[in-house]
Amino acid sequence: MDVSGESLEKAKAELGDLAGAGVCMAGNAFSHVLLVKGEPEVADASGNVPALLAGPDGVALHKALGALGYAPEDWGALSVRDVDGFPLVPGTLRLAIATLDPSTLIALDEAAAAAIREAFADELVELESFDAAMLTPGAVVRLLGMRVMALGGFEKSLSDPKAKQLMWARLKQLPPEGEPY
């Protein structure tokens, strides 16, 4: 087996371990952007619960990322809740983020930001800015080589034109980064 085959097998095993631990993920595991959702998906009128970011919030996020210049497949999603709806323990959330290894991490709502704060508490307390350490919505934070931003209620903003404009202004701070070589 060559190096690329070994890397693929390693990634499959790591992602399989996360899935086995009940981690709820969607999208491309090798993407630059990881969208982290804390609020559970809302069932439709027939009681069906859509897959992670398969609803209107996911459609709007994909559109926004495309407008920023990201490729259509360049996103991954992670829920801070397991497949049974229980919160992930901080170590599991941290492991999932490290395994997916995004260059940009976006907390979509306060529940996601709170879970990220807990999972990365040791690193966040070292930051000089209080807004950065608290992941204040709209602040871009450098954390372990990632750009991190809390949007502060993306899904709820979809029904309010002013809130949508605010989310767009925040997302515009996170254009695709160039390759490091």
Rank of each mutant, 00 (worst) to 15 (best):
residue 5 G to T: 07
residue 111 A to P: 07
residue 109 D to R: 09
residue 77 A to Y: 12
residue 54 A to G: 00
residue 66 G to W: 05
residue 131 D to R: 13
residue 49 V to Q: 05
residue 16 G to N: 02
residue 93 L to A: 08
residue 83 V to A: 15
residue 154 F to D: 13
residue 95 L to W: 02
residue 63 K to T: 12
residue 101 D to Q: 03
residue 82 D to N: 15
residue 47 G to A: 07
residue 180 P to K: 11
residue 153 G to E: 10
residue 55 G to W: 07
residue 97 I to Q: 04
residue 86 F to A: 15
residue 119 A to G: 02
residue 19 A to P: 01
residue 34 L to N: 00
residue 154 F to K: 09
residue 169 A to Q: 10
residue 30 F to M: 10
residue 19 A to E: 14
residue 148 V to L: 14
residue 38 G to S: 11
residue 30 F to C: 03
residue 157 S to Q: 14
residue 40 P to C: 05
residue 147 R to N: 05
residue 17 D to Q: 15
residue 129 S to Y: 08
residue 83 V to Y: 01
residue 110 E to F: 10
residue 81 R to H: 09
residue 111 A to G: 04
residue 38 G to C: 09
residue 157 S to T: 11
residue 105 L to F: 03
residue 80 V to A: 08
residue 74 D to T: 10
residue 34 L to F: 03
residue 138 G to F: 08
residue 86 F to H: 00
residue 139 A to M: 13
residue 122 D to C: 01
residue 56 P to H: 13
residue 87 P to H: 11
residue 4 S to Y: 04
residue 138 G to E: 11
residue 99 T to D: 00
residue 61 L to T: 04
residue 165 Q to H: 06
residue 89 V to N: 13
residue 116 I to R: 11
residue 11 A to Q: 15
residue 87 P to R: 09
residue 156 K to L: 06
residue 35 L to S: 02
residue 69 G to H: 06
residue 148 V to A: 13
residue 8 L to K: 10
residue 120 F to S: 06
